[in-house]
Design a protein around this nucleic acid. Structure first.
Lengths: 131, 131
DNA sequence: CTGTGATACGGGTATATACCCACTCCATGT
DNA sequence: ACATGGAGTGGGTATATACCCGTATCACAG
């Protein structure tokens, strides 16, 4: 067993990701993509830069992930008034995926929440504010 | 703020990884590579498959990560008696990197250990056994 | 109205990871 | 001895992520 906290944390994140991904499989998106969809839903119409800032990810990462969801027709991008800007919106399919995915996500979230418990969630929050 | 435990956990893992990577930067390896080096040190001479099993990673991942460390001359692979097998060993440079990296790793580990606290580590362990 | 610096994005490259397929090599049963 | 199946690896492809650079566009100072 690895006693490196970092490696353990990475593995935990991977396994939890796999669990969420499996839960969301019926709607054909990963948890990273689901998260992106939710952010777009909240912020649309929104630029890639604003999305990236809001999600705490690199702009290029958001751009690439958005492209994937464009290919599967869950997102669409339209040029903004500022021609440099690419504005992202949900498609109807995207909205439907979000609606159908919500209870699936809830289940996974409840399961992990139960495993972590209140103290686990607190530790996680503490970690996020500390690093 | 994302209220998805999975996304939060992923971000936490990324940030902690960045912290360890920065700590290990003087010896020019990432924490994933450092972990691989340590496993090789413990198990050498060892096949890729055994390494992968021991580290809980995919065989192909270990193969690729090993190639990276071969390029930087921290690891070497020699053909095993079984010609299918590729046996991995530490080079002198690899051993030196491990020795020099140990205190750097310790520092990062201590810092994250302090943030997590005993309850945080317990939660993490609980998570690992549950998923 | 023009030039310059700032901003938005895309693409290249890199690590880390997984899964699946093909190839090679071994080992064992007939 | 040979065939068949299993094991070990490598490579292809995919996602998710970061950083850096180039290009296009904008906004503002002069």
């Amino acid at each position: 067993m690895s006693d490196c906290l970092c490696v353990t944390l990475r593995r935990a994140a991977q396994r939890v990701t796999a669990l969420y991904d499996e839960a969301l499989a019926p709607i054909g998106v990963t948890v990273a993509q689901f998260s992106l969809l939710r952010h777009v839903q909240r912020m649309a119409p929104v630029s890639l830069s604003d999305l990236a800032t809001s999600m705490g990810l690199d702009r290029s990462t958001v751009g690439r992930n958005t492209k994937l969801l464009e290919r599967t027709k869950l997102l669409a991008t339209i040029p903004g008034e500022d021609l440099r800007e690419s504005t992202v919106v949900l498609t109807k399919r995207g909205a439907r995926a979000l609606a159908e995915g919500a209870p699936l996500w809830e289940q996974a979230q409840a399961r992990i929440g139960a495993v972590l418990g209140e103290d686990g969630k607190r530790s996680l929050k503490r970690l996020m504010t500390a690093v």
